[in-house]
Simulated scan of single mutants.
Amino acid sequence: MKTKAGLTRFHNCHILREGQIIKEDLWIRDGKIEDPEKVFYVEQLQADVTVDCEGLLIAPGFIDIQINGGWGVDFSYDSENVDEGIKKVSKNLLAHGVTSFCPTMVTSDVEKYHKILPQIKQTDGGQHGATVLGVHLEGPFISLAKKGAHMEEYIKTPEKGLQTIKEVYGSLENVVIITIAPELPGATEAIKDLTDLGIKVALGHSTASLAQGEQAVECGANLITHLFNAMLPFHHRDPGLVGLLASSTKKQVFYGIISDGIHTHPAALRIASRTNPKGLVLVSDAVAAQGLADGNYRIGPQLVTVEGGHAYVTGTKVLCGSTAALDSCVATFKQSLDCSMEYALEAASLHPAIALGIDHRKGKLNFAYDADFVIIHPESLKIKSTWIAGECVYKCDN
């Protein structure tokens, strides 16, 4: 089951395609999904390898656009072993069905950005781990009032727009998403310029009004970072950033949401998904404590306590990210909403692909797309195997 070259046929399976689960074979060649009619009638070829999926479900690989680390690795802190840390996390993510991800750096000092960012390269996935799509920078251009677990002394204002951002981050070469509080001085100009550079702008850790959020969307922002968390609560006179889910702006706004059973109440999940179903993007927001047993740890400059599978700033009940991987979030999401299997899976694959603008090659099982997919149990959603570019990169032993 590790074949990559040649023509491979997956049969006795159901596949998720165009919002529907259908009983159909999946054909793979040279890392891409093939059109079987072309293979049969034009090329008149037979499969080199046939994989019996034993009635399991094939879905597009999961894409995590916000993950801060895991298995003891913190993407924001250790500037000496960046490559080693990225490899460790990307390898472990394969067991959770994640085929692509955005390593996320939270608010840090300028020196950390200048040292770490050039070392996180966009990298194709394979046996070594999931594809690195590029970095998500969450801070330091955020609201002090909504800093959450971010370090106050490093928070900054983009007063000179893109100039300030470049001074703080250094190289933007490997950056694909930047989270900004849109109400800050200089933020509007920064959002326009970042969008022109092809970088996606997310709104978050913010006290912005709905009007400020709508202005940011008009300037190019298309994402909200972990909806409901670190922003003003919904108010009927001014719903704040939450109101973007149902605002009059004609642009599709995507919103990351943490469905780990603690960050977002099931009722809030239902409200968001029913208000703006196409924009919902499941994210893990996992921290270095992901994969670690309960106990006290130092994660970057902070002491963190893992308790009952959740991570808190030590001595408080302030959440500092999730410890749940994306496959767990998908299962919790489906259970909380009692939604269709198709919708739960697309929220972790198709939706993030569209939000990043890579849905022409990832997030679907359409012909000519990258053969990144998971084979899962159709009821338990347990990951049975993970595939990248048509190669089996993880297989469950039981």
Rank of each mutant, 00 (worst) to 15 (best):
K192R: 13
K382L: 08
D35Q: 12
D74P: 07
I178S: 02
Q44N: 12
P36W: 05
N296E: 14
I299P: 04
P239W: 10
V330E: 09
I28Y: 10
G291A: 10
V304I: 15
T275H: 01
T3F: 15
A230D: 07
T323E: 09
G148T: 02
P233L: 04
V281Q: 11
V201K: 06
H263I: 00
Y169K: 05
I33A: 07
I86D: 00
P301I: 12
Y113A: 01
Y169L: 05
P103E: 00
N92G: 01
N81W: 08
K192E: 13
S273Q: 08
E54Y: 00
S209L: 05
L350K: 10
S273F: 03
T332Q: 15
T8K: 13
V313A: 09
I191Y: 01
K395D: 04
K87L: 12
D25G: 00
G240Y: 02
A344V: 07
P301H: 13
P103R: 02
T99R: 03
G220C: 06
G129N: 00
N81D: 08
K23R: 15
G161Q: 07
I376G: 04
L282S: 00
G300Q: 11
T164F: 09
T264W: 00
G279I: 04
Q122E: 10
G6L: 10
L203G: 10
D35I: 10
M341A: 12
D30Y: 08
D109Y: 13
